[in-house]
Structures are given as structure tokens and as C-alpha cells.
Amino acid sequence: MRARHYVITSTILVALVLQIMPLPIQADLYRPDWVLIVLAYWTMALPHRVNVGVAFLAGLAMDILLGTALGIHSLALSASVYVLAANYQRLRNYSVWQQAIIIGLLCSLYHLVLFWLQHLLTDIPFQFAYLWPIFSSMILWPWIFWLLRKLRRQLTIT
């Protein structure tokens, strides 16, 4: 079955599509960090296949798709995935709900680096609305975790 060779790439592509999918303004404030969540799962499950390099490339794709300065999302995703990859063995032993808190902290780091870089480049002010995706990503983590784990086990991805 050749489909299993492209599962990781296709889940990252789906996350990129979900990241740029148009939403109503009220719902757009709560858009989860789809790419970060998918990268976090694959980094914890298969750290030898998904690592900082994959996060950097996914960040470049996000920069291109969102029209931001090249490298902003790359640096933010790479920093977050690096922290996760350095501690993946410890994080695997936590329950899914404890992992959701860790995902919230990773999303906080991601948004902190993202805001810091955008503030240096464009001098944008901080707004509390920047933090809503952290909470929606935390709430969404258990379902994404279970879905991707089921997919990985059914297709025996190693």
C-alpha cells in the first residue's frame, strides 16, 4: 500500500489548507494552530521522521500562503518543534489532557515568537485576541491526537 508513504505529508498539507481556509470574522479569532498541532503529533509519534527541518519547511509554506514576511512562521514553528523534539520521550508518557496543556504552552511560545517578530517588523500592538488560538488548540488536541494515532496505527506508519 503506497498511501502510507504520503500520510505525514498529506496531513501537513491538510493542516495548511485548514490554516488558510476562510472563516467568518467571529470564528477566525479562534482558529486553532492546525499546522503546529499536526507537527506536534508527528514529532511526538515519529521524531526520526518529523523534526525541526519539516517544521521549517511547513513554516515557509505558511509564510507563502499567508503572505507574511518570509521566515516568520518558519522560526516560530521551528522553535516550538525544537522544544517538543527535545522532550518527546517525557511528553509521550503524559495523559492526553496533560499533553493538551503542553500543547497550550507550545502554542504560547509559537505566538510569542510570531508576535515578537511581527512587532519588530511592522510595530503591531499586542491585543488579547492573539491568545484565543491557544485555547482552541488546547481543546482540539485530544481529538486530533486520537484521529492521527488511529490513522498511524491503521496504516502501520513507522
Rank of each mutant, 00 (worst) to 15 (best):
Y6R: 00
I12H: 13
L13H: 08
L13E: 12
V14I: 15
V17I: 15
I20C: 14
M21V: 12
M21H: 09
Q26C: 05
A27Q: 07
D28A: 14
D28N: 12
R31P: 08
L36N: 02
L36Y: 03
A40E: 00
W42T: 00
W42Q: 00
A45L: 02
P47D: 03
R49V: 03
V52P: 02
A55H: 09
F56W: 13
A58Q: 03
G59Q: 10
A61I: 10
L65F: 03
L65S: 01
G67Y: 04
L70H: 03
S74P: 03
V81Y: 00
V81N: 08
Q89D: 08
Q89M: 03
Q89I: 00
R90C: 02
N93D: 13
Q99K: 02
I101E: 05
I102K: 05
L105S: 11
L105I: 14
L105M: 13
L106R: 00
C107M: 12
L109D: 08
H111I: 06
H111W: 13
Q118C: 12
Q118Y: 08
L120R: 08
I124L: 14
F126Y: 12
Q127R: 13
F128A: 13
A129T: 09
Y130T: 07
P133D: 03
F135E: 10
S137Y: 01
I139K: 03
P142W: 03
I144G: 10
L147Q: 09
R149Q: 12
R152W: 05
Q154V: 08
L155T: 14
I157E: 10
